[in-house]
Amino acid sequence: MLCLAKDIYKIYTMGKVEVEALRGVSLEIEANEYISIMGPSGSGKSTLMHILGCLDTPTRGEYYFEGKKVSDYTDAELARIRNRYIGFVFQNFNLLPRLSALENVALPLIYAGVKKKERLELAEMMLKKVGLAERMRHRPNELSGGECQRVAIARALVNNPKIIFADEPTGNLDTKTGSEIMEIFDRLHSEGRTIVLVTHDSNIAQHAKRVIRLIDGKIVE
């Protein structure tokens, strides 16, 4: 089992107000699953995804990644896990504005200790895979939303991760570009990767083999 969440709470305290973003979420994800997490805005989808991706920690409850409790990993180990096992596609892309598409895609490889030449070769390969080879010298502000999304996907893939988390990967895109992006995810799944898709669009969620619904920080069936 890849991910195991047991009764997870995430509580944000802002002054005197407490916001319970997650209220007792339990979830298992097996290798090679294709899951989508659905729910209205503010239901805690992104929060859950960040915790599942070892980017954030739960306030209460236990989360196991690859069989080990995340709170038992050191910072350096967590960084390694994020680098080698996990690929993120963020809701708002999160590309570095001063780097070209190619350099953005190559970024995770720096922290994997890959040599520069090899880094750029791998990054170029990934950009080809998402159909963006001819725009690889451009910076994010010279690219369209769909193109940025492809760069973000290529970056998530470049380290050959076990699991890919994508937060509203089609949220900012028109239907046509959206379905092109979804084709990429479908292909990645058929190649044997685990995919977790966050969305509030049921058409998108249909691509997944299992759909989890989140309302007010709780899973409903």
Partner: peptide
Amino acid sequence: GIRKAVGASN
């Protein structure tokens, strides 16, 4: 944040 998310350690 981005660098850490893609695997930069402290």
